[in-house]
Amino acid sequence: MNNTVDMIMIFLVLTNLALLGLSRLGACIRVAAVQGIVLGMLPLALNRGDIPLHLGLYSAVLIGLKGIVFPWVLLRLLKELKTRREIEPFVGYGTSIALGMAAFVSCIWLGHRLPLPEPGMSALIVPAAFFTIVTGLFLTVSRKKALTQAIGYLVLENGISAFGAAVVETQPLLIELGILLDAFMAVFVMGIAIFHINREFDHIDADKLSSLRT
């Protein structure tokens, strides 16, 4: 079983690096979607023995939202906005990947310092989850388009969810569902807001929103 969890974690790290290096918005959304689907299987993989019904349902909801609904919303938005399909980063793709590697190293150090409450779990969980969180934050910070911020938020949520699945022993579902609801709302609100911003200003560059201050 541990093997599967490790596999998922490695996949998580790889998709993160891919997200950092991808230049096309559509591809980014799809990678985030795949990441969501794989992550949706994590609760099942962590569970030893039989799979109870509620866990299965939860997994299905997770996969349905992160793998299908969110990407669908974002992709439709992308189509309607008729904006340039490129990401326009503040930090270049190569530099992003290099920074990502550095962040991963510090995440491994962090995972070393932050032992899991339950021994015998995959040692990769904490570093990978943290790395996903950092990647999400990095995407939000270093990319111009408001749409990338929505993707960054999704990835961030993926990281939290991975961390939650590993750390919170007794009530992971309750907390996770709460966060999921937040993400759900956020993606929709962001989607609507981005749509309106685009209609109003003919672009969705978040850095130009600073001119709204005055």
Binding site: F90, L137, T140, A206, S210
Partner: peptide, 19 residues
């Protein structure tokens, strides 16, 4: 700056450093 990204960066950096 008034840039959203920079503000998020501040928050993220602070959290990271605290951790």
């Amino acid at each position: 700056h008034g840039r959203v990204q920079i503000y998020i960066f501040y928050i993220a950096l602070t959290l990271w450093l605290l951790l």
